[in-house]
Design a protein around this nucleic acid. Structure first.
Length: 701
DNA sequence: TTGCGAAGTGTTTTT
DNA sequence: CACTTCGCAA
């Protein structure tokens, strides 16, 4: 059976060269050679961080450390795979045996093995964010009266509050006071819901994403024997992207580290962009305090970008309020200036990019070496249409996940119930599909779920109803006792689901391909537990889904959210922004720390580029048109935002070549800005009065 | 149980 | 404004 998870490729050629550390610069070499004791590597963008980790991995193995004794924790599965692959090239196939993955997938593996110590069997179900919200909804409904209050937070907000509390280690009350003051009256109810939520999850054997880390930490704290076992197993630990860990993750690291403290963490505080899930680059700063005798190594030589691009990114990050100071330098002095383009509207932007892509390709840059980056998934919609119409192949990362689409979730729910019949979230999902069953019946049924036994007969309250037959079919599908492979089970579930599926979706012919893809993926897994947990934790991206239809060409341009582009690099990078591409969200305007994160996000985007960088100028007028919808946004916040984003204009004066106009690239007509709503007058309260500033006028009056 | 109209609510980003 | 969620009535 082909291994889908951790080791996607067998390296075709295994070179058996002795490890050549001459390829590293002195700082990198020091990081590689320092194998004992705690090490903190501050690695600037493009400073060969991955290379350093790869060589250290290879070096350890080369020195005779058993590969299984090395634990490599990364942020995405992809980067773990990539490192193991490269280490294999540098050394040999032994490197493939290194244990690597994300925090969550590592936790998943450990918990499936040792979970019984904290009351979880190996077949627990993983709830994604929307599943977790569903469960909260069920719990809230049980609570009765509170839900009738109109201003009570909706389930997804409750989910955010709880998750925020867990990830930052603050109490529910503290989170509400600081981040959700509007719900301050409901603190008591929310605390109660949280308590019910936490205990219910363990009763029905489910874990949300946060639980994977929480339960792992609990396991390590409560069970010294297991902790000792794991510490003995993983004698060397390496953590990538340490600036993106939260306190939960750093606790886990501390608990896993053995008495010899052979731990290396690598990160760049300037690239910390995950505070929304509780990450804090303070972890990096505090690392030496926790681990006495930490050796701090800075990697400052940039191997990625040309000097003009570096000048821009250095100037940008220079303005950051808090940072580990480091100055990136390069030995690639020449290069093209970054280009700052003013496009009239979204479609002009798309056509410009498409045109420029083709031009760059003419100069010998393959599509694989180009990427278009943006802030959130839908920002590339218009561009995708444009690329499609010109037959430019692309692959997209980030944004929508096909496992999150309704029909895929439906189908997976059957499998989840086969795995874990106590999972009331999946029960309520599949019951919803039965004709004649609604909320009431579901509620009744969920009550008897804990008493359901394998091979159960039809429970009495549900006999003789018009849905009884369908319900019986569902029960016998789900409470099966035979052990089939994931793909056999999926076939059974699909047969059961298909009639309802057709009824539910008009566009079912389009969606059915997703279900087929799911079958293909399931076929790669020997066990149901494995299949379900991986599909929840590491859902395949769109590229892998339609891989069947796309062997025509290897060459594709990458479209990606900035968050998913982390750690990657391309010769040419486009940063979209006529709409919103790198503008901060409206909510973040209220918070200086968040604004700082926006700067770091922009920094991450720009530092992906090696040779060519095209930045589309944000259309502030268009963005400003939306402000009136956000009552919390006051004028001072607004102007702070605008001042801050004036930054790029300032930098543009200094560093950026601006004379390249979209019209030059065969764009027919500048479209008028009819789609942009008239500029609203911002409303401000007394002491928030606007200072008369010429810059601001330009945007508002 | 479902379907419809009213009300509210507010965009990221990922495991 | 657009989308989701909720409550109520048939």
């Amino acid at each position: 059976m082909k291994e889908y998870t951790l080791k996607p490729y067998q390296s075709a050629v295994i070179r058996s060269v002795p490890l050549d550390l001459e390829e590293l610069n002195p700082a990198q070499r020091e990081a590689v050679m320092t194998t004992e004791g705690p090490v903190l590597v501050i690695a600037g963008a493009g400073s060969g961080k991955t290379k350093t980790l790869v060589y250290r991995l290879a070096h350890l193995v080369n020195q005779g450390v058993s590969p299984e004794a090395i634990l490599l924790l990364t942020f995405t599965k992809k980067s773990a795979q990539e490192m193991l692959r490269r280490a294999t090239q540098v050394l040999d196939h032994r490197c493939e045996q290194v244990s690597g993955g994300t925090f969550h997938s590592f936790a998943n593996v450990v918990l499936r093995h040792y979970g019984s110590a904290i009351g979880y069997g190996p077949g627990f179900t993983i709830l994604d964010r929307s599943d977790a919200d569903e469960l909260l909804g069920l719990i809230r409904a049980e609570g009765g009266d509170i839900k009738t209050d109109k201003r009570f937070p909706k389930k997804s907000t409750i989910g955010s509050i709880i998750s925020m509390s867990v990830n930052t280690g603050r109490s529910i009350g503290r989170v509400i006071t600081s981040d959700y003051p509007q719900f301050i009256d409901y603190e008591e109810s929310l605390v109660a819901i949280n308590a019910a939520y936490q205990s219910r999850k363990s009763e029905i054997q489910v874990m949300d994403y946060d639980d994977l880390l929480v339960k792992l930490r609990q396991l390590l704290i409560d069970h010294a024997d297991i902790r000792g076992e794991l510490q003995a197993t993983y004698r060397y630990i390496m953590v990538d992207e340490y600036q993106d860990t939260n306190s939960l993750q750093s606790d886990v690291i501390k608990l896993l580290t053995n008495p010899q403290k052979n731990i290396m963490v690598v990160g760049d505080d300037s690239q910390s962009i995950y505070s929304f899930r509780g990450a804090s680059f303070k972890n990096i700063i505090e690392f030496p305090t926790f681990f006495d005798g930490t050796k701090v190594i800075k990697l400052e030589q940039n191997y990625r970008s040309s000097q003009p691009i570096l000048n821009l990114t250095n100037a940008l990050i220079e303005k950051a309020r808090e940072k580990y100071s480091k100055t990136l330098f390069t030995h690639r002095p020449d290069g093209e200036l970054p280009v700052y383009i003013d496009a009239a509207d979204e479609n002009t932007q798309s056509r410009f990019i498409a045109q420029k892509i083709l031009e760059l390709r003419e100069t010998g840059i393959p599509l694989n070496e180009m990427a278009v980056l943006f802030r959130s998934g839908w920002h590339s919609n218009d561009l995708e249409v444009e690329l499609q119409s010109r037959n430019i192949p692309f692959q997209k990362f980030g944004g929508f996940k096909f496992v999150e689409t309704a029909h895929v979730k439906d189908l997976l729910s059957y499998l989840r119930l086969i795995q874990n019949p106590a999972d009331i979230v999946s029960w309520s999902r599949v019951l919803q599909l039965v004709d004649g069953v609604g909320a009431k019946t579901i509620g009744q049924f969920l009550k008897i779920v804990p008493g359901l036994r394998r091979q159960a007969t039809m429970p009495s309250p549900f006999i003789g109803k018009k849905y009884s037959h369908d319900l019986q079919r569902l029960i016998s599908l789900v409470l099966r006792t035979d052990s089939e492979t994931p793909s056999q089970l999926l076939d059974l579930a699909l047969t059961h689901y298909l009639p309802m599926f057709r009824l539910k979706y008009d566009d079912y012919s389009k969606r059915i391909t997703d279900l087929d893809s799911l079958k293909n993926i399931a076929a790669r897994y020997p066990s149901l537990d494995r299949f379900l947990s991986e599909i929840s934790l590491e859902p395949p991206d769109q590229t892998q889904i339609d891989a069947t239809a796309s062997d025509y060409e290897d060459e594709r341009i990458t479209l990606s959210t900035i968050h998913s582009a982390k750690g990657l690099e391309w010769k040419a990078v486009f940063l979209i922004s006529v709409v919103d591409g790198y503008l901060p969200s409206f909510q973040s305007l209220g918070d200086l720390a968040q604004l700082e994160e926006e700067r770091r996000l922009l920094y991450v985007a720009l530092t992906r580029a090696k040779d060519h960088l095209f930045i589309i100028k944000p259309n502030l007028d268009a963005a400003a048109g939306n402000f009136h919808r956000f009552p919390g946004i006051t004028f001072s916040k607004l102007s702070r935002f605008l001042d801050d984003y004036q930054l790029l204009d300032d930098l543009a004066e200094k560093w950026v070549l601006k004379d390249e106009k979209p019209e030059k690239f065969g764009i027919r007509h500048r479209q008028t800005v009819s789609s942009v709503p008239p500029l609203p007058r911002p409303e401000w309260d007394g002491d928030d009065a606007p200072a008369p500033d010429p810059h601001r006028k330009k945007y508002f009056f």
